[in-house]
Design a protein around this nucleic acid. Sequence first.
DNA 1: GCCCCTTATATCAAAATGATATGCGGATTA
DNA 2: TAATCCGCATATCATTTTGATATAAGGGGC
Lengths: 189, 189
Amino acid sequence: MAKENTTIYIILGLLNHEDLSGYDIKKRADYMIGSFWEIGYGQIYPTLAKLEQEGLVTKRVSEESKGPERNLYAITGAGREVLTQWLKVPEQKEYTKYEILLKLFFGSLVPVEESTKRIDAFKVRHTENLKMIEMFKANLQRVMGEDQDHLFFYITVLFGERIYNAYLEWADEALKLLQETPEKGQEPS
Amino acid sequence: MAKENTTIYIILGLLNHEDLSGYDIKKRADYMIGSFWEIGYGQIYPTLAKLEQEGLVTKRVSEESKGPERNLYAITGAGREVLTQWLKVPEQKEYTKYEILLKLFFGSLVPVEESTKRIDAFKVRHTENLKMIEMFKANLQRVMGEDQDHLFFYITVLFGERIYNAYLEWADEALKLLQETPEKGQEPS
DNA sequence: GCCCCTTATATCAAAATGATATGCGGATTA
DNA sequence: TAATCCGCATATCATTTTGATATAAGGGGC
């Protein structure tokens, strides 16, 4: 498994639906895959240049005279081929990085309140994320069946729902454990 | 929030318990935080050099004459200070990257079996991870209460348990949805 | 007319990824 | 006994990703 630029496939996958600019790609990606894969301009623009050079996408300047100049990209046959090949390879990158768990892991160095505050903030953040996901889910359920793309989108939304719920359940469990723990026996009795 | 080398704090956190070599750090990290934060030699050795240069750790060559030469690192007072400061800052990096969801998202381009095979492999992988986590949990429950470090370790283990369970539940839900879906209406009737 | 926001492209240093190179010592195997 | 393989241990490198910043045009509000 060589070190592989995954951004390539995200861009090709999005362009497979419609022609987009780099800016559009960022917005689409944030909206549609943002809950499980983040992407920045620092990856998008260089990768678009690379894809164009390799003949997997073509670039044209948008004609609309209003607003700033837009470079619109379109996928080519070769690009579609590369995308399909990638989809047939089973291997998959998967990584998670939770700084909160790192800080909790080393949490015995600081007062317990630091840890509970951290978990509280985590809860707030993911309660918000869960709310968003539930909105997506409700919207999707209304249009499901129109085409099979929606089913795949729906499946990724269900993933988000499960994960955010797991986060919140864990947070409550962790807070309860921290509350039960006597503060190193330093309290006056 | 500047671009921050998190590896620094992992190393300092581990060295805070005992002196370790780069190789030890890798093994400890894999074992203890590997389920939510991965780290490679490519980060460890350069970061150790940087930490030494900044006076946050000191290096000495291990005396044991058996086996290859070992560089043992110890945390300094300044290092402990940096670690504690980091633990007091609430902000936290958090990202997840699931290539499987990317491939499912664009899954309408390939036969449904590709997607189900992918999810099956995902299940196998995480069933294994869950089994490992349950072992950790059982071991920890036996030694809990001995010192408060175990509680924090336990809390991170509970996180893994929740997450892996969520993965498996989602996988079954997704497989069910894919099975229910007619294959683009191409079957003879 | 001025300020702020959104659109839009682009670049850069720092950090992380993932693979590979090198070598020692001990155990297994031919 | 020699050959081979594995675990320990340090290290580096190209590629990719991160996260911040630079630049600029156009539209809306005041």
